[in-house]
């Protein structure tokens, strides 16, 4: 009950911030619209809506990291978290309370992306549902990163690391904007060593009903999610102790 109360508060803080809405929802939708318009005017198949939409949903998740990290860093920098540390809330309540409310926001963002892509030509099929469910492991990874960065960085650093660096990493190393095979070499190896491209491939595979390929890509994402969550929990507990 205590944890749910705290989680509800975190959800309200995020949803009521207009910047969060603008970046978390508006930015992916604008990209979807712009790139679809671009695709309509170029002869090559670069941003075809059926492959672009799964990629955009993964890119949109990087904002979940920004949301959670900003909230935690702000709570740390103001004395709000300090106040809550003097209440009966436990470390478990804090961790789940911070992570839990962002998951439905991430799923909501994915649903809106897919729904918005339908008028732009996305094929309507049951696989959209699988793709929406398939976003969860990567969403957990991004939310855990938020908990991690929010626990160790200040609010300004969070803006730089999560707002600029992570969104760019997620964009360039995910294969959303270009085929990674075209670049090849170290860049391609690096991309495949990170979870972003696997998440995009997983989404594409689920959307197109290629479940064998999906199963292959879910493994690295799951590993990254577990490691990120464990590290985030340790860092959060460390900063609680430091307080």
């Amino acid at each position: 009950m205590r944890m749910i109360t705290f989680a509800r508060r975190c959800a309200k803080e995020i949803i009521r911030d207009p910047l969060n809405l603008a970046f978390g929802l508006g930015f992916p939708l604008v990209l979807l619209l712009l790139l679809s318009t671009l695709q309509a005017n170029i002869p090559v198949n670069l941003f075809e809506i059926n492959t672009l939409t799964p990629g955009i949903t993964v890119f949109g998740l990087s904002f979940m990291t920004l949301f959670s990290a900003t909230l935690i860093a702000r709570d740390r920098e103001t004395a709000f978290l300090q106040r809550l540390y003097t209440t009966p809330l436990t470390a478990f309540d804090f961790i789940i309370g911070y992570m839990l409310p962002i998951l439905p926001i991430a799923i909501g963002q994915t649903v809106i992306c897919y729904l918005s892509a339908i008028p732009l030509g996305l094929d309507v099929r049951i696989n959209i549902l699988y793709a929406i469910i398939g976003i969860i492991p990567m969403a957990v990874f991004n939310i855990a990163l938020g908990l991690l960065f929010g626990s160790i960085l200040g609010i300004k650093q969070v803006g730089g690391i999560c707002g600029a660096l992570l969104t760019n990493l997620s964009a360039w190393l995910s294969g959303v904007w270009f085929d990674l095979n075209l670049v090849g070499g170290f860049f391609e190896k690096l991309a495949y060593a990170l979870p972003f491209v696997h998440a995009v491939e997983l989404e594409k595979a689920l959307f197109s009903g290629n479940f064998e390929t999906a199963a292959a890509h879910i493994v690295p994402i799951a590993i990254y999610s577990i490691v990120a969550t464990a590290t985030a929990v340790l860092c959060f507990l460390r900063q609680v102790k430091k307080q």
Binding site: R9, E13, R16, T78
Partner: peptide, 9 residues
């Protein structure tokens, strides 16, 4: 000592 309220609530 510092502001300890949830600002968007």
């Amino acid at each position: 000592q510092e502001t300890a309220v949830a600002p968007n609530l």
